[in-house]
Design a protein around this nucleic acid. Structure first.
Lengths: 184, 184
DNA sequence: GCAGAAGTGTTGCTTATCCGACGAGAGCGC
DNA sequence: GCGCTCTCGTCGGATAAGCAACACTTCTGC
């Protein structure tokens, strides 16, 4: 394929790494104290011991920050067990979906969830799509991703919540045939 | 008196504060892992996610860093209960000495102590002298300080260690008469 | 002896962060 | 309506931190 992957800036200035970590940690601790909506950029910058202008040099606004944090979190959990290295498509998708369900399952306590579920969902979907593009073409990745995320959100709202395994098996079964035709 | 106290640089750049904290925290964690002598400036800088050149912009070498850390630690413990606000000289000195003994008593586990007790002692003495200069003239402060620190070090080496109260009472009793004549 | 490796301080130049200020918008009391 | 306050997002100029290189010392092995 002709498309280039996003060109890495070779080396990231350690100050950048540090600043981003400070900002993210700041939001994390603030979220344990109050709701996202009542948190201002000033709050975050102050807690991070970082200038407000510096915040804006890294994130467009507090929503972009939250988005980036969720996506990174999702990315880490998706990569667990290195599912992309699994040859068989069905097995790979099962592993990925299981990882996502596990992530969704553990993240129900966070304050963000109630107020910002749509944002949460979009971020997950975007990240999963990016993740799957290592194996599928963009369009397929998007479709698979939205299916899995959608299922996970439905499952998430069940009370009491059933086991995730049958659902994962079910949805992967549905996807896998169509997907085989779209694999790279 | 005519002497000016060290002129505060008005406002400290938050980057400076942050960098110093990173460096100090780095040395603290490193000391939990290995001996001070085997820790290099590179180690500290790396652990602190700070450039080596930046380290030297703040501290002359690793000894200066250790010294500054000890002194700050001492300063915090000395100020406990705000002994300087106590009018009566004897009571004030008792409080200060008690604070110092408490500090010395709790700091016996640190790895530095065995190899660097002289440095540890000098740093304490310097800090205590500075502290006491709020009440006494320089020369008196130095003398009192060296007496208290010396006593605390002797006490520290006792095995088993006796109660500190009688020793404090004793040394303050010896000092207080001479000191009264040197008070500002 | 000598060569190599590793740590030390220091330097000039680049870059990220800080600062103070600004106009704009939103909320709120009166 | 009118001020008042707070937050936002952005700007130009000042400053601390990063980087790569340097000469120097110390140690180690051969």
């Amino acid at each position: 394929m002709a498309t280039l992957l996003a060109e890495r800036p070779a080396r990231i200035d350690p100050r950048v790494t540090r600043t981003r970590k400070l900002i993210r940690d700041a939001l994390t601790t603030l979220l344990a104290e109050k709701a996202f909506e009542s948190i201002t950029v000033q709050d975050v910058a102050e807690r991070a011991t970082v200038n407000r202008a510096t915040f804006y040099a890294h994130y467009a606004d507090k929503f972009a920050l939250l988005d980036a944090m969720i996506r990174e979190d999702v990315a880490v959990h998706l990569a667990e067990g290195d599912p992309l290295s699994v040859e068989d498509t069905r097995a790979m998708l099962s592993a990925v979906a299981t990882n996502l369900f596990a992530f969704v399952g553990t993240h129900r306590k966070c304050r963000i969830d109630r107020d910002f579920e749509p944002q949460f969902e979009r971020a997950m979907e975007a990240q999963l799509t990016e993740f799957l593009q290592a194996r599928f073409e963009h369009c397929t990745a998007m479709l698979v991703s939205s299916a899995i995320v959608g299922a996970s959100m439905t499952w998430r709202h069940q009370a009491p919540r059933s086991a995730s395994d049958p659902i994962v098996k079910n949805i992967v079964g549905i996807l896998v045939d169509g997907v085989d035709r779209g694999e790279r």
